[in-house]
């Protein structure tokens, strides 16, 4: 008995060895910052180290929840992220269904190639592009609007328009990716279903409605449920590079608030508290989302 145990451990030893570098990395750079969460309960003094600063209980959280704009920031986050999630299902599913109707292979491939490209460009590059083309004075979009007799729109400077600009530009970047995912799901539909439907006299629309759409419903439900876990992620990379004090009222989100409070204003304790609040709520939502996805779409990650 003792001998088989040694053999087993020897057999498993290389597996531990393989994991070792990644485990160290995760301990330092992922679990390490989790220890740093104690700062949320401290008045962080520079140079005092992680446990040298005075403990102040929940004061940082009280301060955060009394900030006049905090609830607005949460609302902005959920509003922008929610709209992105909804549009992020409707647009790619529609485009995938439309592409599925195209008979010309060349046309289909060209469209796919073009709409998929922005997915791989960073928000730095895209922000550079959008700031230029959306400029109210000499941006090409507003020049076009003026040419057809419309008033110029301050896409990035008007706080009533800004959230919608974020949703639109985000869809512009990401719908091609979603389209490809749904197209892949479409190819898995059993072709004999279409044959049977044709024999029964179903027309093109009826086939789409009763075969194609239900065929990708599993994927739609899965991706929608999983996006629930992201409802507090309104897109830091995008908003940080496109917003300005002019649009803080509707455009400031949790992540940008954390950045400004912590990195720009050195309020480490307060910023950590906001970050912790977000992490905990997100974790709960992810848990719920996975439970739902497992229940409705039989989804498992491992």
């Amino acid at each position: 008995m003792a001998k088989t145990k040694t053999i087993k451990i020897n057999r498993e030893f290389p597996l531990y060895l393989m994991l070792l570098p990644a485990v160290i990395l995760a301990l330092v750079f992922s679990y390490g910052p989790m220890v740093g969460i104690v700062m949320a309960f401290q008045r962080v003094l520079p140079g005092k180290g992680l446990f040298g600063s005075p403990w102040i209980g929940w004061d940082n959280f009280k301060y955060v929840f009394q900030m006049p704009n905090f609830y607005q920031v949460i609302w902005n986050t959920v509003f922008i992220a929610g709209l992105k999630a909804i549009a992020g299902v409707i647009v790619p599913v529609s485009v995938a269904l439309m592409l599925n109707n195209v008979t010309s292979k060349l046309f289909k491939r060209t469209v796919q190639t073009v709409v998929y490209l922005p997915h791989f460009l960073s928000w730095i590059i895209l922000a550079g592009i959008f700031v230029d083309i959306l400029s109210p004075s000499d941006g090409v979009v507003n020049l076009l609007l003026k040419a057809v007799g419309m008033q110029p729109i301050f896409f990035l400077g008007n706080d009533n328009v800004f959230p919608w600009t974020m949703v639109a530009t985000d869809i512009w970047k990401s719908f091609g990716f979603g389209t490809i995912v749904y197209l892949a799901a479409l190819t898995d539909i059993d072709p004999t279903l279409y044959e049977a439907a044709t024999v029964d006299g179903a027309n093109r629309w009826q086939q789409t409605w009763h075969i194609t759409l239900p065929g990708i419903m599993g994927t739609i439900i899965m991706l929608t449920t999983l996006s629930l876990g992201n409802i507090l992620n309104a897109g830091f990379d995008q908003i940080f590079n496109l917003y300005s004090p002019l649009v803080y009222r509707t455009g400031d989100i949790i992540d940008t608030l954390v950045y400004r409070t912590g990195i720009a204003n050195y309020q480490y304790g307060v910023a950590t508290a906001v970050g912790l609040f977000k992490s905990v709520v997100s974790l709960l939502l992810i848990g719920i989302a996975y439970k739902l996805a497992a229940k409705f779409a039989d989804y498992r990650i491992f």
Binding site: V28, F29, S30, G32, P33, M34, V35, G36, I37, M39, L50, D255, V258, Y259, G262, I263, Y268, A271, T272, G275, L276, K278, S279, L283
Partner: peptide
């Protein structure tokens, strides 16, 4: 789950 931006920066 993550510690957030500030603790990450500190680490």
């Amino acid at each position: 789950f993550s510690g957030g931006m500030i603790p990450y920066y500190m680490v």
